[in-house]
Amino acid sequence: MALLKRKKASITKSVTKTKDCSQLRALLIADSAQDRRCAARDLIGCPHASTSLLEQLACEQETSVRQVILSSLTQIGDQPAVTGLVHCLRSEDVSLRNEAIEAMKHLPEAVAPIMANLLNDPDPDVRIFSVNILESLCHPAVETWLIDVIRDDKHVNVCATAVDLLGEVGSPAALTELNNLKQRFGDEPYIQFTADLAIRRIQGG
């Protein structure tokens, strides 16, 4: 036995025959996880793909398939995809929630119009997750949204998460509200710490 001589045959040349959309939809609920991943990946070009993917996501147990579904939803990035991802933010499944946050970071154009609503959601957890999304969202309004949060939000952890991020993206425009926040949560050492750090970083830059 030894190192094999190169031979073209070792690489599958036979391109998998493209399946049509109805076949892919059937495959998305197949028994084999590999088939489901494959369908989730190839459904991208099909009409109403987001709806099919979200339906499967709701009941999919296999982590690897969920990951591929979420990647495909991110690549599609249409309104149904985003609505479905927002729904995932309310899930009690931590993995699903975090995967949805990661996916939404890649969809600035689709997420921006609903961001104000998300940041005013009655559930503080959803508001925290929305600030988490802002962390990597490439959008010019990120700082304004964060300043609104630290001015208006009553929940200490929502504000704390926003200040953490302002330390990175904040400009002098955030200074007034950072100082106000320190007053508002005068007895919270963490707020004092993170706001001071943000202020120092903004002034130092």
């Binding site: 001589k5 190169r6 690489i11 599958t12 998998t16 990946r41």
Partner: peptide
């Protein structure tokens, strides 16, 4: 002997169809 032991082939890792051949 060593050169013959390695098969070189073009693949773009960003292309699902390319990687699917592997």
């Amino acid at each position: 002997d060593i050169r013959d032991a390695v098969e070189f082939t073009r693949v773009n890792l960003s292309e699902s169809a390319d990687v699917r051949r592997m």
